[in-house]
Design a protein around this nucleic acid. Structure first.
Lengths: 349, 349
DNA sequence: GCCGGTGTAGCAAGCGCTTTCTACAAGGTG
DNA sequence: CACCTTGTAGAAAGCGCTTGCTACACCGGC
């Protein structure tokens, strides 16, 4: 029924071994023979059996990419960039690799299960993107898995994620703290003193780091923070909308709202607008990430640009062993403050 | 080094066959034996060798999802929904499957290559999302591949994509034509007579269908179209921005702009605003898809809501054989007109 | 003209799992 | 009490490929 290596070998009048070697190109084969084999492959429309090949060679050409939310461009952009570098179709690399984008939905169990699935497939590499969950047992479980993967020869890279202790995984970490600090410093520089903060899910590292940066900026400016000014939520617009209404209820005198990311900021804008407040005259709004739509917000969003595509590409190259990992296996990738229309001097109260 | 089935068998004092049967659960095994095997698996921290298993069983648990642009939420939302249904971790289905999201970037060659790669992996199912490329030879090549995949036992489902002729692939098609027609009819109903249209890439089916719907509405209303009113571009905001400037240059008297999708519409809004035109007082703008950010545009975007998540979920279920394919293998999924703030009556000229 | 490279190709032993077929006990039946 | 189900487990034959080792020409050099 299906064409196998042996069929091709028979047709080309060579041994299966020779066909395999022609296909893999890692062994000298006379030009004439290769020619003949290639023709046979073509004529029979032969397609290599991936599992068989992976079994025999003890490696596969699968590369796993774990994302928290595939519907979020934040991850989509990184995943696309990674995929572009791992030599999938169109990539420069010779061997064609299949990128496997796995959507964990932010769930620790699914993250672990996907890691196991990838281990089972003997993935060539795994890239984990986005913030990690801070639960200690889970972190330990992930670290253990990563170690096992590494032992089995799978290259592990973290992209936009803090380093995993006790692991030799390469980490390209976003400087969320620094970015957040610069952002809030900008707001403080404009004269704001009462700033609401809409955080992401409590247990996410990203959430904590950004919040810490925010608070560091406040502390540096000697601004005391009211605990009512912080609300936790999810990384989506709905959350931003609801949190903003909550903040407004808690303290209507806020002059600025800093959001965990751009989507949240968009939701915040909607809530403010519906509450009859102008941006930035009445309330300034700031986001984080600088996703493509942020510049189209009205007014356009002040935010911190994260080089998602660049970081993803780099992670992809490191995962493929085409680029040296950073010294110490850890690199911090900085964001850039983008001052736009959504922030301004506070209203005089 | 690595733990194999045989190791587990030895430890549990049973034959490898029994271990395999316990793990696959498709053969009666005495409770006590199963218990013992499971314990051994746990103690040895055994992980099945995917390729070996796939080779022996002649099937794999990989499911491919082809998308045109993984960074675009349009595809992200569908991919997420599909993945949620194919029984990956967290899904209800028993057997855990690995979703493989492949980013074709809209390139026909990569589409074909990915299809081959999936064929090579003996994927359990393949879901192709988004508009197809209309180039005849390419369409034929894809159809041939899909046939071959189906022959090899891979279930093929098209989601948001027109049916593939000479193929028994199940197709859940979006009614782009109908949606576009309703949208333009809405604009005509408001009194617009000079409507610019920003189309997507020429060769995409989605582009053609939406444009046809638009023109059908114009024709039905007896409005004659000026060829200068249509500009082709890509499905991103930049394209919308540039195309709008072009349209404005060609005919400043346009009172409405219909965009190929929401991202394009956002770009159009930016261009209009920069040109000093108010939305919708001076120019109405309409999008397509109703992505999450569309409601946050200012003014919020009139658009056609496509049930991306629902369609994706259904496609996922069909791909897993958990839902009957629609009669004839083809279903048309309708969009819903969402009238919002970006469209209004035209200015009196 | 014999010998040791050098360049190619084949042989055959797995890789780790699934599954058919067979084997054996235990229990029910005439 | 012999015989046949029924339930459960093992033996072994692959699945299709890779690769270490071996084999054979053919070449040039002494």
């Amino acid at each position: 029924m299906t064409v196998t290596l042996a069929d091709v070998a028979a047709r080309a009048q060579v041994s299966p071994a020779t066909v395999s070697r022609v296909l893999n190109g890692n062994y000298p084969v006379a030009a004439a023979t290769r020619e003949r084999v290639l023709r046979a492959v073509d004529e029979l429309d032969y397609v290599l059996n991936g599992p068989a090949s992976a079994l025999a060679a003890a490696t596969s050409d699968l590369v796993g990419i774990l994302v928290n939310d595939i519907a979020d461009p934040f991850f989509g952009i990184m995943a696309g960039a990674i995929q572009g570098e791992i030599g999938g179709p169109g990539g420069r690399a010779g061997g064609e690799r299949l990128a496997v984008v796995c959507n964990t939905g932010g769930s620790p169990e699914r993250e672990l299960t996907y890691l196991t699935l990838l281990q089972r497939q003997r993935a060539a590499a795994v890239v984990l993107t986005g913030g990690a969950v801070e639960d200690a047992p889970h972190a330990a479980a992930v670290a253990a898995k990563l170690r096992k993967l590494a032992d089995a020869g799978t290259r592990v890279v973290l992209c936009g994620r803090p380093p995993a202790p006790d692991t030799d995984a390469v980490a390209l970490t976003f400087d969320n703290r620094g970015g957040a600090r610069a952002l809030t410093a900008h707001l403080l520089g404009l004269g704001h003193r009462r700033l609401g903060y809409i955080a992401g899910p409590v247990e996410r590292t990203t959430t904590r780091h950004r919040l810490e940066g925010h608070r560091a900026a406040l502390a540096a400016a000697g601004v005391e923070e009211d605990p009512r000014w912080t609300v936790y939520g999810r990384y989506d617009r709905r959350s931003g909308y609801e949190a903003t209404l909550e903040l407004l209820r808690r303290d209507p005198s806020l002059t600025a709202i800093v959001a965990a990311n751009d989507s949240v900021a968009l939701g915040a804008c909607a809530a403010l607008r519906e509450s009859g407040l102008r941006i930035p005259e009445d309330v300034s709004v700031a986001g984080f990430d600088d996703l493509p739509f942020s510049i189209d917000a009205v007014p356009s969003l002040t935010t911190v640009r994260l080089p998602l595509a660049e970081a993803g590409a780099r992670a992809g190259r490191v995962a493929m062993g085409r680029e040296e990992p950073p010294p110490g296996g850890i690199a911090s990738v900085r964001g850039e403050l983008m001052v736009r229309g959504s922030t301004g001097v506070p209203r005089v109260s």
